[in-house]
Each structure stands twice: as C-alpha cells, then as structure tokens.
Amino acid sequence: MATSTLASKATTDRTARDTSGPVGQGRRIGSHVVLVILAVYFVVPLWWLAVASTKTNSGLFAGDALWFGSDFALWDNVTGLFTHQGGIYWTWFRNSFVYAVAGGVGATVLSVLAGYGLAKYRFRGRSVFFALLLGSVMVPMTALVIPTFVLLSGMGLLNTMWAVILPSLLSPVGVYLVRVYAQDAVPEEVLDAGRVDGAGELRLFFQVVLPLLRPAIVTVLLLTTVATWNNFFLPLAVLRDPNLLPVTVGIYNWQALSNAGAGGEQVWNLIVTGSFLSVVPLVAAFLSLQKYWQGGLSLGSVR
C-alpha cells in the first residue's frame, strides 16, 4: 500500500529520503535495477543452455552464442541422444530417476521415523544419539566416499545400483529438521488424547503424526531428492558399468572424451542438449512446487 502511493508520485527528488516509509522513490528504482542485474546474471547461463541445445555441432562454434543459429536442430539433437551409443543417454536418465526416487523417498522415510522418535520418546541413549547426529551434520560427506568404496567392495555391492542408493539413505540434516519440527508441531496432548482413546503407537503415527508433519516431510523429500539427483562424487567412485551411471557422471564422461578426443568423438551438441534435458525435470518440479518449498527450506533456520 505504502509502495503504491509512493510510486504514484510523479516526481520525487532522487536524493531526498522519504522518512514516512522505509523505501524512497529513488531507492525503489535503484533496488529494481539491482534486482534486474541479479536476475540477468542468474538466468543468462540457462538461456545460453536452452539456445545452444537448438544448435548443430558446428553451429555451436559459429555466430552469436546467446542467440539462435540458422538451423533449429533441437529435434535432431534429441534424436541423436536416442541413437548415439545405442541411446545410452536415456539409460542414464532413467538411472538418475531411480537413484533420486529411491534415495529421496528412502532417506525421507528414515528421517521422518527417526526425527519423530527423537522428538517424542524419551528412551535411554536418546541424548547421546542426538549429540552424535548433530556432530555428524558437520562431517563432510565426501570424506566418506573412499572408505565407503572399500566397504561396498567388501560387501560385493560395488558397481551395482545399491552402491549409490544405500549411502544416499543417510540424511542427518533430514533427521534434524524433522526432529526440530516435530517438537512443536506434534503436541503431547494430542498424542495422550489418542492413547486414552485406545489408539496404538503405530496407529497414532500414521493417522495423527504424519499429517501434522507434512511440511517437514515435503521439505526433506525435496532436499534429499535434489541431493541424490545432483550427486557426482559417489557414483563417480563406485560405478564402472556405463549402463549404471546417472546422467551427471555420463555427461561428465562425454565432456572429458570430447575435450580429449578428435573429430568423431566430439559430441558437443549432444552434451549440451543432454545437459538441457537433464535440468528440465528438477527446474519444472521447483517451479510447480513453489508454495511447498518456499516455506519449507527455511525450516532449519527456525529454532
């Protein structure tokens, strides 16, 4: 309201500070200019990716990098992804999907159970476990990759899908978020009332607790799915079979080959189009699920 009245003032001295509101007219224009610059900075690389995915392999080197070329080759490139190396790109795409869903859903289930258990039950060893959990948030996950590789090799799980999925189930941050959220979102009185009515602990969990935890569940699901979809170090280390790679490692390999190799191995158009297609699902998910994550991602900052 205050902003619209300010905006309706036709002329305002740029240097004068409007003390009736926190934002003056000149400052408002300045703020918008800064915002536009920021928006351009964050969008231009993605714009480039979208435009470049419509170009042929040679078209990428010619003409204006930030505008469409003479040929619109997006469909040719997509077809190319189906034929190059027997369409292995789509195998990678499917693998990424499997890893993200299995890792994301699995990690969320474990986090919700553990977070709720830590928040609402006072069992022996609870404080020790919670302290361990808090400490583990500060353990860099990449420090675990090399010993995990050796362990998985001992279990005979190396070079299987399990090698990526099982370690992805670990999300200390997820447990922490649910535990913090459940503390206040699930009142003791509601649980006690349910118990008086004769509901068992499991029935309470499914019928009373889960609906109350929904915002935390969506947030943890989003965080863990993104983390698994984006994972690179772990699959790079534990997978050798090209047919098991997620799209991130697969495209990385194509790029390394194209940079090192000559003529026929250079598939820049496929790398660019493959990269573009691989970011579409998550970007679409984020744009369509706005109202869930915008509140949810800040859970960790609310004590």
């Binding site: 964050f42 969008v43 690389p45 993605l46 480039w48 990716l49 993104v226 979809w229 984006n230 690179f232 991130t248 490692v249 495209i251 990385y252 790029q255 790398i271 990269s275 691989s278 970011v279 998550l282 970007v283 998910a285 984020f286 744009l287």
Partner: peptide, 13 residues
C-alpha cells in the same frame, strides 16, 4: 533456479 541445477551441469555450462 540454479539450486535445482546439478553442480556437474552448472560447471559444464
């Protein structure tokens, strides 16, 4: 939006 882009793809881009 860049948060939703895998680090590999971001670096590649």
């Amino acid at each position: 939006v860049p948060y939703a882009i895998p680090a590999v793809i971001g670096a590649l881009m």
